[in-house]
Write a protein that binds this DNA or RNA. Structure first.
Lengths: 211, 211
DNA sequence: TCACTTCTGTAGTGATCGTTCTAGAAGTAC
DNA sequence: GTACTTCTAGAACGATCACTACAGAAGTGA
């Protein structure tokens, strides 16, 4: 067994609490004092357990992505069709961004939008991770264009950028107080922009050649 | 003529400089030291001319809305059709949010997304002003539903919320480094979600009843 | 019991925050 | 010139920032 005085708090619970505070206020606006108050532990305990503020945030971010934010990767991985994946992504985001028991919006999107120059690396890290997500979406769309789900000439980059922007807009709206139903309607509208299916008879013909 | 030592700087220019700094870094992340450095004046001069940081920001915000951000109100006021207004709004936003000579994105959207609790009133003010813009858009859409430009059953609130979210997403994308062409493609995609025209023969028939 | 290790609470580090005091500079009015 | 007013520069205010030195508490291993 480990020797020495045992830790007086649960590290996992503390990390969850830190996620909540960072999620609510963002990286820069979250002070160590806010964290120690929220977690009910002293600053030295926090530093001993997690390192410094940056390391704590990065660990919280990592955990966030693998839990609260995992629905995005799941939607892309589990839905065979790109259209179904995007629809599921948007609908689950509408719910996830407006849960009453959690901070609003998306931590990955909203935690470092206004940051001081000395936190620029944190903002860059979040931007990079957003880019990874957007590229996964783009790959899904490009694959659909190859399989025939979408027209071969589909601009996967443009479409992925659009839905990435819609997600960012939904997060912003959620943080502005929009209701879950409002976000669902945003999702509905965004899905109207999905390109008409490739013209092969089975489509419903919105984009089909006339006559 | 006014007595006393004359001001050593141009107040108007200083306000423009403050707009640029707040636009780039947001309210909380902008320090007085950053402002005095950028404007080339001392702190007492800044305080004498503008009051405190909050008052300076609010004055910068007011000026921003009537200059850099005025294209939104103009699009809604000058375009007779709601569809044309929204298209112009999105296309001008795509350009305005990615100008190389200005900070990226929209100050009204991005200046207080992560703010400390003691700046909550600033965030609330920005949120309120965003709400004013969204309501103007909603009114424009509702009017179009009354005149027959849009179907009478059009959900103006849902559609306005969608385009408000798209604008917020475009601002976020611009701040993430997206190119002007990327934002134009977002605008194009978002316009695909515009409802089909009311069925009265003169429409181009995308949503017209078949045969 | 006693050494050893690890954690906790108090208090304090230097830096930076927004803001202001104070002394003097730079103008007008007479 | 002198009086008066207004602005500027430097220094400093208390508060808060992220972070840590230090001393004692609380456990294990002998």
């Amino acid at each position: 067994m480990r020797t020495g005085r045992p830790r007086s708090f649960d590290r996992h619970e503390a990390l969850e609490g830190a996620i909540a505070v960072f999620w609510e206020h963002g990286y820069d606006a979250t002070s160590i004092a806010m964290l120690t108050r929220a977690l009910g532990i002293g600053a030295p305990s926090l530093y001993a357990a997690f390192g410094d503020k940056r390391a704590l945030f990065l660990e919280a971010l990592d955990r966030y992505i693998r839990t609260y934010g995992a629905f995005t990767a799941r939607a892309l991985a589990e839905e065979p069709n790109a259209r179904d994946a995007v629809e599921r992504l948007l609908r689950e985001a509408a719910a996830a961004y407006t849960r009453p028991d959690r901070p609003r919006g998306c931590l990955l999107i909203a935690a470092a939008t206004n940051c001081s120059p000395q936190s620029a690396d944190i903002a860059a890290r979040l931007r990079e991770l957003r880019g990874v997500g957007a590229r996964a979406l783009e790959d899904k769309i490009a694959a659909a264009a190859r399989t025939g789900e979408l027209p071969a000439h589909t601009d996967a980059h443009a479409l992925a950028t659009f839905y990435a922007a819609v997600l960012q807009g939904m997060s912003a709206q959620a943080r502005d107080g929009a209701a879950g139903t409002d976000l669902e309607q945003i999702a509905d509208a965004a899905l109207q922009a999905w390109p008409p299916a490739a013209d092969q008879g089975a489509s419903d013909g919105v984009g089909a050649a006339p006559k």
